[in-house]
Amino acid sequence: EAHFQVQLEQLRSMGFLNREANLQALIATGGDVDAAVEKLRQS
């Protein structure tokens, strides 16, 4: 989780407030914030 701290903060600042969902999306996308946003929008 600490590995994705910067990305988690970016997602939070973009309005994605579900930390667990954000973390799962980042893990699934290897930390790619843009891909994580797409994944979160689809769910």
Results as ranks from 00 to 15, higher is better:
1 E>D: 05
1 E>M: 08
2 A>I: 10
2 A>T: 08
2 A>H: 10
2 A>K: 12
2 A>L: 08
2 A>E: 14
2 A>N: 10
3 H>C: 09
3 H>P: 05
3 H>I: 00
4 F>T: 07
4 F>Q: 08
4 F>V: 03
4 F>D: 02
4 F>S: 01
4 F>G: 01
4 F>N: 07
5 Q>H: 10
5 Q>R: 05
5 Q>L: 13
5 Q>M: 09
6 V>F: 06
6 V>L: 05
7 Q>K: 05
7 Q>C: 03
7 Q>N: 13
8 L>C: 04
8 L>D: 07
8 L>V: 09
8 L>S: 09
10 Q>P: 00
10 Q>E: 09
11 L>V: 09
11 L>R: 00
11 L>I: 15
11 L>M: 12
11 L>S: 00
12 R>K: 14
12 R>W: 07
12 R>G: 10
12 R>A: 06
12 R>N: 13
13 S>I: 04
13 S>K: 15
13 S>Q: 15
14 M>C: 05
14 M>V: 05
14 M>E: 08
14 M>H: 06
14 M>W: 06
14 M>T: 08
15 G>L: 03
15 G>M: 02
15 G>P: 00
16 F>E: 07
16 F>K: 03
16 F>Q: 07
17 L>E: 14
17 L>P: 11
17 L>F: 15
18 N>S: 09
18 N>E: 14
18 N>V: 13
18 N>D: 12
18 N>W: 02
19 R>S: 08
19 R>Y: 15
20 E>A: 06
20 E>L: 05
20 E>P: 08
20 E>I: 06
21 A>C: 12
21 A>T: 14
21 A>N: 15
22 N>S: 04
22 N>F: 00
22 N>V: 04
22 N>Y: 00
22 N>R: 02
22 N>T: 06
22 N>M: 08
23 L>K: 11
23 L>R: 09
23 L>D: 07
24 Q>I: 06
24 Q>N: 12
24 Q>M: 04
24 Q>A: 12
25 A>V: 09
25 A>Y: 01
25 A>E: 13
26 L>Y: 00
26 L>Q: 00
26 L>F: 00
27 I>W: 06
27 I>T: 14
27 I>G: 10
27 I>K: 08
28 A>L: 08
28 A>R: 05
28 A>S: 09
28 A>C: 03
29 T>P: 00
29 T>Q: 08
29 T>V: 14
30 G>M: 08
30 G>E: 13
30 G>D: 09
30 G>L: 06
30 G>V: 08
31 G>H: 02
31 G>S: 04
31 G>L: 01
32 D>N: 15
33 V>F: 03
33 V>L: 10
33 V>A: 07
34 D>R: 06
35 A>V: 08
35 A>C: 08
35 A>F: 04
35 A>G: 12
35 A>H: 15
36 A>S: 12
36 A>R: 00
36 A>P: 00
36 A>Q: 00
37 V>L: 09
37 V>H: 08
37 V>E: 09
37 V>Q: 11
37 V>D: 04
37 V>P: 02
38 E>N: 15
38 E>V: 10
38 E>R: 08
39 K>G: 09
39 K>N: 00
40 L>T: 02
40 L>S: 02
40 L>V: 10
40 L>Q: 04
41 R>F: 03
41 R>A: 12
41 R>P: 09
41 R>T: 12
42 Q>S: 15
42 Q>I: 06
42 Q>L: 11
42 Q>R: 09
42 Q>N: 15
43 S>P: 13
43 S>R: 15
43 S>F: 02
43 S>C: 14
43 S>L: 13
